[in-house]
Computed example of a mutant assay.
Amino acid sequence: MSIISLSSGVQNNLSIMPRWPATQVLIDSLAWQKLQAVQASLPGHLGLILTRAYEPRVSELGRARTAFRRAGICLFGLLYRHRKEEIQDIFGSNGHDLDGTHIDVSFSINGQRVRLLPLSVFTPMSWQARRIKKFDEELSMVLAALLAQGFQLHRNATESLQIHCDLKPVL
């Protein structure tokens, strides 16, 4: 496994937009190759956006993410008492602290970024359903292309709309 560092911008027709407060995305080289293949398989009006991959736990960014998670868990628990069983799936590190094969992506349509979760993980389920319906065709194409390249989507509905996916290990 080798990790490569990608700065904001467009590289090999794929947009890199690190999620704040990160300034770069650290990704496994095979996962990066697979994402490039995903982008190449998509119609020209759809663009893939890489937002997050490996974030070492022992770093300023890792400590910041831990603090954000703690605050998020408290707020989510207050707002969505009926969804407490989802907290670990939504606020866990989901492998981002292990290696660069656990990634979050987004997509754009004709250069305009699609925000499936406009309020991040705090987006109400009814809003999520409307966004899925509005962008169903494009979302289906992106997810199918990711699956075809060996990525596995997160089991949680909200995390899967954040398009968190893991590159399945090659056996």
Rank of each mutant, 00 (worst) to 15 (best):
Q33G: 08
C74K: 07
P169T: 12
P18F: 02
V25K: 04
G100W: 13
S15K: 01
K134Q: 08
S120A: 06
V114T: 05
E86I: 06
K133T: 12
E60G: 12
V121C: 00
E137A: 04
F91A: 14
A22K: 01
I27P: 05
S93R: 13
I27Q: 06
K168N: 04
L26S: 08
P43R: 00
R131N: 15
Q152K: 14
R113D: 08
L119E: 14
Q88T: 07
Q152T: 15
Q128H: 01
G100D: 13
I4N: 00
N156V: 04
T123V: 02
I90H: 12
A53G: 04
P56K: 06
A37C: 04
D97C: 11
A71Q: 08
L116W: 09
F151N: 15
L79C: 12
S59Y: 03
Q162F: 15
R113L: 03
Y54F: 12
Q88G: 09
K134N: 01
E86F: 10
A129K: 03
L6I: 01
I3M: 09
L146V: 13
E60W: 14
L167G: 07
F76V: 00
S160A: 15
T23P: 01
A144S: 13
C165K: 11
S8G: 15
L35S: 09
L146P: 14
F107N: 07
N12L: 09
L146G: 13
Q162W: 10
N94C: 13
S140A: 05
Q36D: 11
S8P: 02
W20T: 09
D166P: 06
G62H: 05
N94M: 11
S8L: 07
P21R: 04
Q112M: 01
L79Y: 12
Q11V: 11
S140E: 00
S7A: 13
I49V: 14
L6F: 02
V114H: 01
G47Y: 04
D89W: 01
P18S: 05
R69M: 03
S8M: 11
A144W: 06
L75K: 03
C74G: 13
S2Q: 12
Q152W: 09
G62D: 09
Q24P: 02
D99H: 05
F76L: 09
F107W: 04
A40M: 10
K133L: 07
I16W: 09
V121R: 07
S41Y: 00
W127D: 08
L50S: 11
Q39N: 03
V10T: 15
I109N: 00
G44Q: 00
L98D: 07
S15L: 03
N94L: 05
E86R: 08
D97M: 13
P43I: 00
R57N: 15
N110C: 00
A37N: 04
